[in-house]
Nucleic acid binder design. Structure first.
Length: 428
RNA sequence: GGAGAAGUGGCCGAGUGGCCGAAGGCGCUCCCCUGCUAAGGGAGUAUCUGGUUUAUCCCGGAUCGAGGGUUCGAAUCCCUCCUUCUCCGCCA
């Protein structure tokens, strides 16, 4: 959520900024609602003030034994007027909130112009795609060996876009998770957290999945008190919400968290896309990286976080490139996003394996996630960042395809050897 | 799942209809005293938000787990929900 004060004071500049995204802000509508709000709020608060002072006088009069009836008569119709005013005001506030919460984040100056993913800009590349002296197979064909990746069984158990993994493949999948978590905790200074995979709607609102992106989520049926429950689409939701409604000590900053969770996405609207294999699943594992930092540190933090994700690929010796998303392709809550794309030999292309974003104070404002600035002794909003470090299923795809051998067996990357119990290759 | 108790500021804890955004204590910040340490004295110390300035100051509003209700007036009374604790049951 943007700062409503910014919208009040400098809406034209905001509108101009947002037009880079292709987002059209209805300035006139906002301003007319704001004008109404201002007058209505002032008159309502005046009425509240009147009621409060009258009530105090009644209290005093009663204490000193005076007749309070004249005072009561005075405020007789105040209650109704006040109630009506408060109702109108809260309706108006709700309409303004709806508009404001539908406005995407301001973009970083360094974000390139552009409309779609075509306009994203590659900023660096690492590694050389291996050349094969045999015809490469994709991970689905390779995964069919020994039933390593069993999509048919998953379809029977559940439906499309799920997978069953067996034996050495299941182990390598698990090894990847351990390897990523260990690297981030021991080499990059992250604290590991374990979090719920089911969250309430407040948490999803805090990170911005709700109200706009409900169709991407799996919602649980049943009665759970007065809140709706959802499966998490990413660890970003539970981990970022750790600081919701908190005022953290400045000396605890920056905070760096990593968490492994399954992620559940309904993938509504992506029918027909990536239907083959492991690329786009309803359930997948991800190791997530999160930073909570002071405002002045967030630009640097994004660079560091992105590097932490890249290093995983370098250790696994998987070629990748890093791109910065253009204005039109940058996500709703993000100020700036880097995507890391790994080389996928069978498709002869780079595929997204991590997305690292600086949300600035956009999520923090919604969540009231703050810290106390020791210099001013005032509370300020944190800046939040997150990125995948990495998506485990897609990393597995990259390993299977990049490390394939002529006979269909798969070499184990050196970095994973300590986690594979002596296994050096997945034998066909 | 059953029975009971409780949810108040950074923490502990008082407050059962008005003078309560809230006693007292701890913690923290600043000042004074002090050879060092320890102790002592004084002042300050919740959040969100409107108006005005837009750095303060000032004048308002809201918030005592959440949401409703009663009342001129609710931390306090009523209802619903959530959470925590104790006991019993069940259980990985």
């Amino acid at each position: 959520m943007l700062d409503i004060k910014l919208l009040r004071s400098d809406i034209d500049a905001v509108a101009k900024q947002l037009s880079r995204r292709g987002f059209e802000l209805d300035v006139a509508a906002f301003q007319s609602l704001e004008d109404q709000r201002k007058t209505l709020q002032m008159t309502t608060q005046e009425l509240q003030n009147e009621r409060n002072t009258s009530s105090k006088m009644i209290g005093k009069a009663k204490a000193s034994g005076e007749d309070i009836q004249p005072l009561l008569d005075e405020v007789a119709d105040l209650g109704e007027k006040l109630k009506a005013g408060e109702q109108q005001l809260s309706d108006l506030q709700a309409r303004i909130d709806e508009i404001v919460s539908g406005i995407p984040n301001i973009l970083n100056e360094s974000v390139p112009d552009g409309k779609s993913e075509e306009d994203n800009v590659e900023i660096r590349r690492w590694g050389e795609p291996a050349s094969f002296d045999f015809e490469v197979k994709d991970h689905v064909d390779l995964g069919a060996t020994n039933g390593w990746m069993d999509f048919e069984s998953a379809t029977k158990l559940t439906g499309s876009r799920f997978v069953v993994m067996r034996s050495a493949m299941a182990r390598m999948h698990r090894a990847l998770i351990q390897f990523m978590l260990d690297t981030h905790t021991t080499e990059h200074g992250y604290e590991e957290v374990y979090v719920p995979y089911i969250v309430n709607s407040d948490s999803l609102y805090g990170t911005g999945q709700l109200p706009k992106f409900a169709e991407d989520l799996f919602k649980l049926e049943g009665e759970f008190g007065d809140k709706d429950f959802y499966l998490i689409p990413t660890a970003e939701v539970p981990v970022t919400n750790l600081v919701r409604d908190e005022i953290v000590d400045a000396d605890k900053l920056p905070m760096q968290y990593t968490a492994h969770t399954p992620c559940f996405r309904s993938e509504a609207g992506s029918y027909g896309r990536d239907t083959r294999g492991l690329i786009r699943q309803h359930q997948f594992e991800k190791v997530e990286l999160l930073h909570f930092v002071k405002p002045e540190d967030s630009d640097d933090a994004l660079e560091r976080l992105t590097r932490h994700a890249e290093i995983i690929l370098e250790k696994l010796e998987l070629p990748y490139r890093t791109i910065v998303l253009c204005a039109g392709d940058t996500g709703f809550s993000s100020n700036k996003t880097y995507d890391i794309e790994v080389w996928v030999p069978a498709q002869e292309t780079f595929r997204e394996i991590s997305s690292c974003s600086n949300m600035k104070d956009f999520q923090a404002r919604r969540m009231q996630a703050r810290f106390r600035n020791p210099e001013t002794n005032k509370t300020e909003l944190l800046h939040t960042l997150n990125g995948s470090g990495l998506a485990v299923g897609r990393t597995l795809v990259a390993i299977v395809e990049n490390y394939q051998q002529a006979d269909g067996s798969i070499k184990v990357p050196e970095a994973l050897l300590p986690y594979m119990g002596g296994l050096t290759e997945l034998k066909a």
